[in-house]
C-alpha cells in the first residue's frame, strides 16, 4: 500500500512519460556539471559572477534566435560566444585599468543584458523572450540532452585535471605565481567552464534560472561538510535532489519546472541555514549552550 503510493509519487511520472525521463536525465547531468562549478565560484568569492555571466549570455542567444529561429545549436553557440566575450572584455578592463574585477563584470554584463533584451524585443514576441529567459526542462529534445550531457562530461573531466591548480590559485595566488604556476590561465579556463555550464542549463532552465542550480546547492554545501571533497559531494547531491524533486513537484502540483527546481534548491538552502551540521543556526545555538554549562 505504502509502496504503491511511493511508486505512484516518485517513480510513475518518470516510468510513464518519456518527456519526464528526458527532463530527469537533463537535470541530473546539469547538477553534476554545475554544482562543482558553483562550489568553485563560492570558494573564489565570486558567487555573484555566475549571475553576471548568465545575463551576459542573453544577446548571443538572441542573435542566434534571430538568425535561425528557435534552434538550440544556434542559440547555444551565440550564448557561448557572448559569455566568453563579456568575460574577456571584463578581464581586459580589469587588467589594464584601475576598475576592479567585480565592477567591470557588472558593467559589461549589464550592457550585454540590455542589448539582449533589445534584440529579442525587436525581433520576436514576448513569448520568445520568456522562453529564452526561463527555458523549459519538459521540452528538452535529443539535441539538448546531448549538449547537456557533453558539457557535464567535459566539465567533470576538465575539473579533475585542473583541480589542484584551481584550488591553489584561490588559496594562495602569490605563492602559485612564485612557483611559476601560470595562475591566470587556470582562471580563464575556469571562466570558460562557467559559461559552458550556463549555456547547457539554458534550454532546460533558461538563462536566468540556470545559475540557481549552480549557486544554491554550492552555498548550502558549506553548511554540511567540513572538507573541500565533502562540500563537492554535498553540492552535487543537493543539486541532484533539487532537480529530481523539482520535476516531481512540477508534475504533481502543475508548476513550471524551472522555477520549481530552483525554489526547491532554495528551500534546501533555508533548511541548511537552520539545521546544517557545520555552522547552521540551530547546531550553533545548541553547541553554544553546551559550552556555557
Amino acid at each position: 500500500m505504502i509502496l504503491a503510493t511511493l511508486y505512484e509519487t516518485l517513480v510513475a511520472p518518470f516510468a510513464e512519460f518519456a518527456f519526464m525521463r528526458r527532463a530527469l536525465v537533463a537535470s541530473v547531468a546539469l547538477a553534476l556539471g554545475s554544482a562543482p562549478i558553483g562550489l568553485l565560484l563560492v570558494m573564489r568569492r565570486m558567487s555573484l559572477m555566475g549571475d553576471a555571466m548568465s545575463h551576459a549570455v542573453l544577446p548571443g542567444a538572441a542573435i542566434g534566435f534571430m538568425l535561425a529561429g528557435l534552434s538550440l545549436p544556434a542559440m547555444s553557440v551565440g550564448g557561448f560566444v557572448a559569455g566568453v566575450l563579456v568575460a574577456a572584455l571584463a578581464g581586459i578592463a580589469t587588467r589594464y585599468t584601475s576598475v576592479r574585477e567585480d565592477a567591470s563584470f557588472a558593467a559589461f554584463y549589464l550592457m550585454s543584458l540590455a542589448a539582449g533584451v533589445l534584440l529579442v524585443s525587436v525581433s520576436g514576441s514576448n513569448v520568445d523572450l520568456m522562453h529564452i529567459l526561463f527555458g523549459s526542462v519538459l521540452a528538452v529534445d535529443d539535441a539538448a540532452l546531448l549538449l547537456v550531457a557533453s558539457v557535464a562530461t567535459v566539465t567533470l573531466l576538465t575539473l579533475a585535471v585542473i583541480w589542484r591548480a584551481l584550488l591553489i590559485e584561490c588559496l594562495d595566488p602569490v605563492f602559485l605565481f612564485s612557483m611559476r604556476g601560470h595562475g591566470p590561465w587556470w582562471h580563464q579556463l575556469f571562466l570558460l567552464l562557467v559559461v559552458l555550464n550556463l549555456v547547457a542549463g539554458f534550454q532546460a532552465l533558461g538563462t536566468l534560472m540556470a545559475v540557481g542550480l549552480m549557486m544554491l546547492p554550492a552555498i548550502s554545501a558549506r553548511l554540511w561538510a567540513r572538507s573541500v571533497g565533502g562540500m563537492l559531494v554535498a553540492a552535487v547531491l543537493i543539486a541532484t535532489a533539487s532537480g529530481v524533486g523539482g520535476l516531481l513537484l512540477s508534475y504533481h502540483v502543475e508548476l513550471p519546472s524551472g522555477p520549481a527546481i530552483i525554489l526547491l534548491a532554495g528551500v534546501i538552502y533555508l533548511l541548511s541555514l537552520l539545521v546544517g551540521k557545520q555552522g547552521g543556526a540551530l547546531p550553533r545555538y545548541l553547541r553554544g549552550r553546551h559550552l556555557a554549562e
Partner: peptide, 11 residues
C-alpha cells in the same frame, strides 16, 4: 607570502 594574501577560510 604575508598571511593576509592567503584565503584561510578554505577547508
Amino acid at each position: 607570502p604575508q598571511q593576509s594574501e592567503i584565503d584561510r577560510s578554505l577547508p
